[in-house]
Amino acid sequence: MNNTSNLDEARPEMDDLLNDYFKNQMPKPWPAFKEPATTTQPKAETGAWSNVSARVVLAACVAALIFGYLTLGTFFPTTQAPSGVHDMQREIGHRDKPKNTTNQSDEPVPMVP
């Protein structure tokens, strides 16, 4: 049932004109939908694989780093640091007191007649 039939009968020439105009404007033939050449699905697969491989590589790198650290630690056990460096650290900002001065200050000063 067409609710606009009464309008169509009222001004048939107007309807003809509008029908012609709008039908003329519509694309002929109507285009079919064209699927894009590159879909997102292959990209998603590639992305998932790259994520997995990147994580595996990262984990391998971390494992190699830890293994190397532990291995080198066994070859080179912890020892005392070189005395030169250690002593230098101690001496920084420290002033030695002369021994003679210390002894003189402890003993009573002889009185000179």
Partner: peptide
């Protein structure tokens, strides 16, 4: 919808008739 359609058609018909286009188009 009915009111707007009727009003739009009426307005178009009046203007086109005033320009002598309503009767020219068959």
């Amino acid at each position: 919808v009915h009111m707007r359609l009727s009003r739009a058609r009426q307005r178009l018909a009046d203007r086109l008739t005033a320009q002598g286009l309503g009767a020219k188009h068959e």
